[in-house]
């Protein structure tokens, strides 16, 4: 029994099916899409996938542009990829979009400790 790999997925993606998830890939690409399928190697099928375009000079930063409807707002530049099969080995991390948002620095107290 124990000789075979149990391959129990530590992440339950079942509950994220048909919900939006964010995936960051090995080289730094980031996509958002609706989770349509997955397997035990965390290969993933996404629908309505949008890739965030990155800054030309700094590939670690995402590209922002003025919102065409509201010129005061900046929005992230994306391109549509449609339905995509994401290879599990090149996935860096993934998280649900729902409940993910940018916050202010929560570590201000221990900043110096982090720097060391």
């Amino acid at each position: 029994m124990s000789g075979r790999k149990p391959r129990e997925n530590i992440l339950n993606l079942e509950k994220s099916l048909d919900k939006e998830i964010l995936i960051k890939f090995n080289g730094g690409r980031e996509v958002i899409g609706t989770l349509k399928g997955y397997d035990s190697m965390v290969n993933i099928v996404l629908d309505n996938t949008k890739e965030f375009i990155r800054d030309v000079e700094d590939h670690n930063k995402l590209k922002w542009a003025q919102d065409p409807e509201n010129s005061a707002m900046l929005v992230q530049v994306t391109r549509n990829l449609g339905i995509v099969v994401c290879r599990g080995t090149s996935i860096m991390y993934l998280c649900p979009v729902d409940g993910t948002y940018e916050i202010n620095n929560p570590f201000i107290g221990d900043e110096e400790e982090e720097e060391q």
Partner: peptide, 29 residues
């Protein structure tokens, strides 16, 4: 491979922070 909950993700330059309810991180990275 890690499954984390109540995560604060910090970008590599340490300027932006994201709150995530959960996150799956691949072990080899």
């Amino acid at each position: 491979n890690l499954n984390l909950k109540d995560v604060v993700c910090t970008s590599r330059d340490g300027t932006s922070f994201y709150q995530m309810p959960e996150c799956y991180v691949r072990g080899n990275l």
